[in-house]
Design a protein around this nucleic acid. Sequence first.
DNA 1: GCGTTGACCCAAA
DNA 2: ATTTGGGCCAACG
Length: 116
Amino acid sequence: MDHDSWERVREVVAAIPAGSVLAYGDVAAQAGLPGRARLVGRILAEDGHDLPWHRVLRADGTPAPHIATEQLTRLRVEGVLAHNGRIPMRRYRSLDADCGNCSPENPSLYPECGRG
DNA sequence: GCGTTGACCCAAA
DNA sequence: ATTTGGGCCAACG
């Protein structure tokens, strides 16, 4: 774990557009740290106050328990709605700018992506 | 060094 | 739908 990786994680989170979300694992992958989702949670916990941390949640769409209400409240304001405390990732998951992980199951939120 | 503890993830049962 | 077990790894005592 070096200083650069830490900054990259922060940048990825900072770049998530309002109205969409990313899983901890997604952030790790996009920051070049595949398989290190826990590290992302750690970074947000101690150095995420100035970031849109509420746009990052678990892969199954549920928020971490201790911040659940605050997170869901903030997301609701951005138009990201939960059902039974769970966010439907299919709909709100943000994708790479180049649509690297775009698929019919995971349609792009960006109009410039032809595959959405 | 070693064991514990997490804003986690996934395949298998 | 849940639970289980394994993998991940930086901080902390």
